[in-house]
Nucleic acid binder design. Sequence first.
RNA 1: GGAGAAAUGGCAGAGUGGUCGAAUGCGGCAGUCUUGAAAACUGUUGAGGGUCACACCUCCGGGGGUUCGAAUCCCUCUUUCUCCGCCA
Length: 423
Amino acid sequence: MLQVPFIRENKDLVITRLAKRNIDATNMIDQVIALDEDRRRIQSNLDNTLAESNTISKEIGNLFKAGKAQEANLLKEKTSLLKESSKQLSEDLNRKSNELNELLYKIPNVPNEIVPAGNTDEDNEEVFKEGDIPVLHDEALPHWELAKKYDIIDFELGNKITGAGFPVYKGKGARLQRALIAYFLDKNTEAGYTEYQLPHLVNEASGFGTGQLPDKEGQMYHVTEDNLYLIPTAEVPGTNIFRDTLLNEGDLPIGITGYTPCFRREAGSYGAHVRGLNRLHQFDKVEILRIEHPTQSYKALDGMVNHVKSILQELKLPYRILRLCGGDLGFTSALTYDFEVFSTAQDRWLEISSISNFETFQANRLKLRFKNADGKNQLAHTLNGSSLALPRVLAGILENYQTKEGIVIPEVLQSYTGFSIID
RNA sequence: GGAGAAAUGGCAGAGUGGUCGAAUGCGGCAGUCUUGAAAACUGUUGAGGGUCACACCUCCGGGGGUUCGAAUCCCUCUUUCUCCGCCA
């Protein structure tokens, strides 16, 4: 959620930056400013009314103490009028505030200056590319065929137990999953992130805190009986650790990492690109998350990008980094870098990580603040990214490391898997 | 699931109708001392709205009520703790 004073003072900037998302926010912004003016006007009326009745109440108290009951009773009559108008005013105020908030919930974050304008993923800007694309043998297969051939992932079995998009990992496939999780967590903790094990279900307030609600309600699995949501990413429980908190400046920066399964309804995605591991309802992901001082957050973003780079270098996978264009940028993000690994057998890039700076957009709704050097409470910046999401990394490994003899395990993973080839 | 107790500032914890936005301790910040740090001592320190700045208003888990006046009384919801039951 954007901050109203920021909108008020940077109206033109907000509108031109939101245009990068192909949104003409002029009307919404005007409305925000108008509603805010109304709100403040009503508030000030209400304040004056309440101030008057507070004064009278004190007088009444004093009169009673002085034994002047009759005069006190006269004053009492006066308060009933004030009461009525303050009731009316506070109703008006509530209505305006709610209207304002509903509108604010609908306005996405203001993109950073360097975010390219654009509509679709084709307008994303490639900023880095590394790693050799292997030349595969003639009988090379896409990962879903490999999974069947070596009996390491069973998609049909998942259909039977749950439904499409809930694969079952078996034998060396399951072990490879576990190895990747352990490896990612080790890399992240080595880089200074503190490991957390987080709940996989969250309440409504947490959903609001990170912006999944009310926006993407339909994308989360909802346990109606207890009104809880299955997490679509560890970002939700992880960031909500800091909901309604006031940190000291010295507490910053904070870095945490956690492995969780992620549950996504993915309503509306069908077709060839969802085959195999490409798009799932349940998948595993190791997340990194940072709370930063506003002056440090972009440096931290670069640091996160470099960290994920180093992992992909170790895994020796061909990858590229994209700076997302306005149209592809998530609702809450100000700047996002996507990592994509090249799937040789499918001849396409697969997104495996998304690293974003949310600036104060999440912190505002979360009320995540720190006491700055001037002793003022200031919103912190939040960032997060995948480090890394499992299924597509797994797809990339299976496809790029396949040989006629079997699938070779990347060297850095072998101490985790305990084997060097799947055959 | 049953019975009882509780929810107060960054944290812990007093406060049972008016001078309480709230004692005290811890923590934070500033200073004294010190080569520096620690300790000790002194001062300062709740949040949000509003204002150029004051004034002023709101907030003691959420919502509603009683009252001229509520952290304090009543209703309701939520959460936590203790005991019992069940249980990986």
